[in-house]
Design a protein around this nucleic acid. Structure first.
Length: 431
DNA sequence: AATCCACAGGAAGCCCGGGAAC
DNA sequence: GTTCCCGGGCTTCCTGTGGATT
């Protein structure tokens, strides 16, 4: 009896292997050998870099496009190809903290090309940026402690110590603005005038089209010398992209009819995000494997869509700071017990009650206002500014995800659970 | 047309923890 | 140890504002 079930388990596990051949190829970190529908962008990126390698002053490049339009993939693709061709070093793994390059090609004849990929969400201040760049050049700088100009000098000297072209890719470059650290952009874009041997070229990647409006005009002109736009993929293009991956990543006949089309259609609805399309495909396949299906079917895609949306929300909720949880919980309670629209003031008064009940510090309304904005940006709340004339200007707030899901998830936190019996007082509102 | 509400959201600065250098 | 520096969370103080009401 025992043996039979074990045998069944083996059979099951073996049959599971019939769908996905190579899962890595379905992850967005994977850069494929061919990038469909991006020839124009690749060309426009290669040209300025080649002329810089020929000795001209390099142009800085600004790349726009929404998430999943292939910005990062194209830049890495080009970087990889150039380093292989010309020689140099390429660092592209954003989250791996190490000094060894991902690709290194020796070439004695030419000045080496240093191609460095940095994600500004992670490296989000002038100091950290310079320290990171120093690290790649073999200079060790403490994570904190030095005055910034000393770090800058260290970087400058290390860079200029030999003849080379350094290309710094700043992904999610808008991350640098929020922390009011645009000095780094100013310094980096002007560094070429002081460099004697080396050259530096910046490639900024942003998914915010309005990004440049907020820039200091001096930075704007030097950073945006070349601008590349990455339009979203339409459903047909997404189908092409997925088809290409499917042929390599799946076993033959493992993907049912309409699966690719459905993944592409869902992703096209959400501004043509190829990353999303790939995620859907991968998760659909995982669901199919778990069910022991012979192939991925459309219903798996539907299931995958629901699953990814839920997972995202739960992950966000779980990692929310305690104060944000209290604010969100206040909105949830108001939405549950209150019929009128919810405004900032209501949230704040419920929030204060919850703080007293749970023994936490009460923050100011100014701060809560910011926390509400953050929750709005995360998509958990929907807040819009409305003017009620004589009765002031405020935000109307609604919960953006199924309320019971949020409530349940928040109440797994014992601090929230403790105040879960609280009922907000009935609002007496005009109008 | 003037008023005035209930906030939004910018600016400056405080405080604290963490890390490095002295 | 002390001193210096940085970043992040937060407060205080402030100016700005759309439109119903006066």
């Amino acid at each position: 009896m025992k043996q039979r079930s074990l045998e069944e388990l083996f059979d099951q596990c073996i049959s599971k292997r019939l769908i996905i051949k190579n899962k890595d190829m379905l992850r967005h970190s994977y850069t494929p050998d061919v990038l469909p529908h991006r020839d124009e962008q690749i060309e426009n990126l290669v040209h300025p870099l080649i002329s810089a390698l020929k000795g001209e002053t390099p142009s800085n490049i600004l790349i726009y496009g929404k998430t999943g339009t292939g910005k990062t993939a194209v830049v890495k693709y080009v970087g990889k190809a150039l380093v292989r061709k010309i020689g140099g070093k390429f660092y592209y793994r954003p989250y791996i903290n190490r000094i060894k390059p991902d690709i290194e090609v020796k070439n004695d004849d030419n000045a080496p090309l240093y191609f460095i990929y940095i994600n500004c969400e992670v490296v989000d201040t002038q100091y950290r940026m310079l320290a990171k760049l120093c690290e790649y050049l073999g200079e060790s700088v403490p994570l904190t402690g030095w005055p910034t100009d000393k770090v800058y000098d260290t970087f400058f000297n290390a860079l200029d110590s030999s003849k080379r072209l350094m290309v710094v890719v700043l992904d999610e470059i808008d991350g640098l603005l929020k922390k009011s650290s645009e000095d780094i952009l100013y310094n980096l874009t002007r560094i070429n005038t002081d460099l004697k041997n080396a050259k530096l070229s910046i490639i900024g990647i942003s998914n915010d089209l309005k990004f440049i409006e907020f820039l200091d005009p001096r930075i704007k002109s030097s950073l945006g010398e070349e601008e590349l736009i990455f339009p979203p993929y339409d459903a047909v293009q997404l189908v092409n992209i997925l088809t290409q991956r499917v042929s390599e990543a799946f076993y033959p006949d493992a993907v049912g009819t309409g699966v690719i089309q459905r993944c592409a259609a869902y992703a096209a609805q959400e501004h043509g995000d190829a990353r999303r399309a790939l995620d859907l495909l991968r998760i659909s396949a995982e669901i199919a494997e778990r069910e022991n299906s012979k192939r991925v079917e459309e219903r798996h895609v539907k299931e995958a869509k629901v699953k990814t949306e839920n997972d995202r929300v739960i992950e966000v909720l779980r990692t929310l700071p305690a104060q944000s949880k209290l604010v969100l919980y206040s909105v949830v309670l108001l939405e549950k017990y209150n019929t009128s629209t919810i405004v900032t003031g209501d949230v704040y008064s419920v929030y204060k009650d919850l703080c007293r009940l749970s023994g936490q510090d009460i923050l100011t309304q100014r701060r809560i206002s910011d926390l509400i904005s953050e929750l709005d940006m995360l998509g958990i709340l929907n807040a819009r500014i409305v003017s009620k004339g004589r009765y002031g200007r405020t935000r109307e707030i609604r919960v953006g995800v199924p309320i019971n899901q949020i409530k349940r998830e928040l109440e797994t936190d014992y601090k929230i659970e403790r105040v879960s019996s609280y009922v907000p007082p009935v609002q007496h509102k005009l109008g």
